[in-house]
Design a protein around this nucleic acid. Structure first.
Lengths: 154, 154
DNA sequence: TATTGTTATACTCTATAACTATA
DNA sequence: TATAGTTATAGAGTATAACAATA
């Protein structure tokens, strides 16, 4: 079998990491589709949700929390600010900084967005047996906690 | 509490889908970093691996299998062909089509790439007990099998 | 098939302004 | 004060990736 794979080259479907990433990509698409119904990108929802959770905060802290490049958050905030979902105000204590806060309109939109996302979550994960869902949560938490795979950062 | 979230707007970290996607993104970055050591992009590895698994096939079939837009696979194949990792030959039975096949050099590179990915896989998932890994594979497969979340495509 | 263009995302580099510390 | 160094933000530019329209 000249072109068949051997044990050194497993099919992509046999790689747990590959199917894991593929499944997550699908979930993300479901999120994105749902969020587009309320006119939000996933990252914009993450920003609104984080602002609502933390309260007003500096752009840098916000970028760190939502794991966005500080150079990229500007455009997201520009769009959200233009639509009046967030406000930016100079910090009077350090005028280099902007304090970003969610507006009442932003909070309204966030509620609608989260309601929509609840549908996705329950559709994707709600059908699973409880133990399977718990396992998935555990496994993802363990992976998120990895700094860099051991034997990978050499 | 004017800015605190209520039950309608859970923190992002409480959404299983969100942490799932975030963990998978991390895994994908590990893959990408490792693959860059052998000079491959993730999609290029997927192409080589698929060609090795399926044998020579048409670009369209290849694109469908690796879930790439037929209009995007061209550039990946151009690069792989230039580096002699794949060959493109006109199908004698339908000279509009190209038959793509992996070369011996391509297969060598694939072996090296897969060996590198094995390191990532074992670092990320190797710590899990075998049964748990199997369950995780099941859970992700179930998600991948979803067409569109029920109650989502209305 | 291939080309072209658009969008989303991610990263890098540079510029500007404002702060801090020190001579 | 003046100067140097740092920080927060902004903007330009590049790269991967997914997708749409058309040749």
């Amino acid at each position: 079998m000249p072109s068949a794979h051997d044990s050194d080259t497993p099919p992509l479907g046999d790689r747990l990491g590959y199917v894991f990433v593929k499944a997550a990509w699908k979930v993300r698409q479901f999120y994105a589709e749902k969020l587009s119904e309320v006119g939000l990108l996933p990252n914009q929802h993450a920003i609104l949700s984080t602002l609502n959770e933390l309260g007003p905060c500096h752009q840098k802290a916000l970028a760190a929390r939502v794991v966005l490049d500080p150079g990229d958050i500007v455009a997201y905030l520009d769009a959200l600010q233009k639509a009046r979902y967030v406000e930016r105000n100079r910090d009077p204590e350090d005028r280099r900084r902007q304090i970003v806060s969610i507006t009442d309109e932003g909070r309204e939109l966030l509620v609608a967005a989260d309601r929509a996302l609840d549908d996705v979550e329950s559709a994707v994960f709600g059908a699973m047996p409880r133990e399977r869902r718990a396992l998935l949560a555990e496994a993802t938490a363990a992976i998120s906690a990895l700094d860099s795979p051991a034997g990978c950062g050499d």
